[in-house]
Design a protein around this nucleic acid. Structure first.
Lengths: 333, 333
DNA sequence: AGTACTTTTTACATCGTTGGAACAACGTTG
DNA sequence: CAACGTTGTTCCAACGATGTAAAAAGTACT
């Protein structure tokens, strides 16, 4: 059924190794033999057995990508880009979903041995530094901001600056009571975005108020709606809201509409992530747009370099670009 | 570095094969030895080398999932479910993205040999029957409706009936000029949904008009908006629209709003797929909700059975359930 | 022709695992 | 106690590929 090197060798009348040499582009093969082998390769339709090759080479040819859930638009988009970037470098990607729980994240990290993948890109949600396996086991690249102080390669946008940028934009519109939705002490990213929020308030001469920071257990639409609802119930509700991601913002849009208020006239709303959906929501959503392609490519590039050689140089911290995308939810029509 | 069976065997003082027997749950191992081996396994933290095992067993342990793009919500959600269902049966999933183009789809099918994966779930967009490789090469399960008349295992909801259900719902609201958005001769699913649309019109005593069927090159939001715009420009515009998927419907919502009209008062809109986003759009979207979990599990189950034995029974055609989810875009608030 | 060198090909071991045969130990039975 | 079936273990080959070293073939020079 399956064609192996041996079959090709028999057909071409040379040894198995010579065929292997041709396949791998080894220089010293007599033109005559090369031609015969290539003909045999074409005739049989030979495809290398990836498993066997990697067994021999001590590689698996796979990278893991650990994310909370593919059904979350940001991760669906990111995973698609990572797969493409990996493919371009000859890697296959295995996706592991953790639902964003610390226990599943830890289990996943443990189960990822060098026997299964050569390296991993992890986008943790709730992991603590202590959960990380003994360093040096396997190349690991962290994706997305986190508050862990660890010696691990890392690729992300500057979350503090990005949050600052979004909130400054709200302030520049003349809004005075700017709320935040999405605080969650268990999530690393949360404290970064909160810090940017606070620094922007300060820079605009606005005072910080605890009551304007609404927590969210999960960064999903329903939680954004619930948080917005409670903010609107305050004695003096906010006139602008910075949501820690677009899903929360989409939920917030709905809560505002259900209350019979208008965006941005009564409440301006800004999000974070620039999901495709946010360009078409009603109103469309002002948001921080990370360069996801750059993120995916930088991460793949980094893990690739670690796997193929560079084991020693110090952990890198790469910042990829972002932009503030101003749309109807703050600008109006 | 990596622990192999040999290391465990040395530590336990038995042969490699005995360790292998313990790992694989072979019955006849002396309790004493079993205990020693298990201790050694625990002490070393042994993990089987999947590649080597599969090389020996003649399997790869991988399934391929071919979809257009992970960034499309429906496929992100579906892929997440497929990965979970596969994981539960001990399979790993490799995702291949085709961008929905026929050439990439064909290339992908060709590159998927038994050397790389043991089976594949394919969700074609533009493939023709002629593009399929000689049957019997490798277990293949088709996902989603298509108009190909082929002897291949297939899992999907009844698209004709589902479209019929959605359009009947629109008719039951008293709408008389019901349009459709998304026709595309190159897409298999398109003709199924059009058929359901037509049969529902007929059942409601409404006449079919070509001008009310708007084509869409891609089933993305922007194309839905463009199509809706052209429908609204008709001398007598529709009072309801059935969109062939939710993304088109989201685009349509925006076009209606930009025209200054209301949904559902002026135009009722229904979609198809029940993306998570559709529950929170403004207004929320009435849509056909396929049971995606059932779809993923049925597909994995089927390909699993084909791989492990059942090569002979005739191709199956499994229909998974769906429901009509009635929301604000037709019902109103 | 003999030597030294380079180019090309081959045989063999090996990666980590499992299937099968061979072998050893054991208790039963006639 | 010899013959036997059962249980438990080990040895060896194999999955398909590649690295190594050695053999073979070719070239150039004394």
């Amino acid at each position: 059924m399956t064609v192996t090197l041996k079959d090709v060798a028999t057909l071409a009348g040379v040894s198995v190794k010579t065929v292997s040499n041709v396949v791998n582009g080894y220089a010293f093969v007599k033109p005559e033999n090369r031609r015969r082998v290539e003909e045999a390769l074409a005739a049989t339709g030979y495809r290398p057995n990836v498993g066997a090759r990697n067994l021999r080479r001590g590689r698996t040819g796979f990278l893991a990508l650990m994310v909370p859930e593919l059904s979350i638009p940001y991760f669906g988009e990111l995973a698609g880009l990572v797969i493409t970037a990996a493919r371009n470098r000859g890697w296959n990607v295995l996706i592991e979903q953790t639902q964003g729980t610390r226990s599943r994240e830890r289990e996943t990290l443990e189960s990822l041995g060098p026997h299964l993948v050569d390296g991993a890109l992890v986008h943790p949600e709730a992991l603590e530094a202590a959960d990380f396996p003994a360093a040096g086991e396997m190349p690991l690249v962290m994706l997305g901001e986190h508050s862990l102080d660890m010696a691990i390669d890392h690729v992300a946008i500057d979350n503090v600056l990005a949050a600052h940028t979004a909130v400054s934009h709200l302030a520049s519109l003349g809004r005075r009571r700017i709320a935040a939705i999405g605080f969650n002490p268990a999530r690393g990213t949360s404290s970064q975005r909160l810090a940017g929020y606070r620094s922007a308030l300060a820079a605009a001469g606005l005072s910080y108020a605890d009551e304007l920071v609404a927590p969210a257990e999960k960064w999903h639409r329903a939680y954004g709606a619930a948080a917005m609802k409670s903010l609107l119930a305050l004695p003096s509700p906010p006139d602008a809201v910075f949501c820690f991601n677009d899903l929360l913002a989409i939920g917030a849009l709905r809560a505002v509409a259900e209350r019979g208020l208008r965006v941005p006239e009564d409440v301006a709303i800004a999000g974070f992530d620039n999901n495709e959906e946010s360009e078409f929501s009603l109103p469309s959503l002002t948001t921080i747009a990370p360069d996801k392609t750059a993120l995916a490519e930088a991460a793949i590039d980094l893990v690739h370099r670690r796997i193929t050689g560079d084991k020693t140089s110090p952990p890198q911290d790469i910042q990829t670009p972002f932009a503030l995308e101003i749309r109807e939810s703050t600008r109006g029509r």
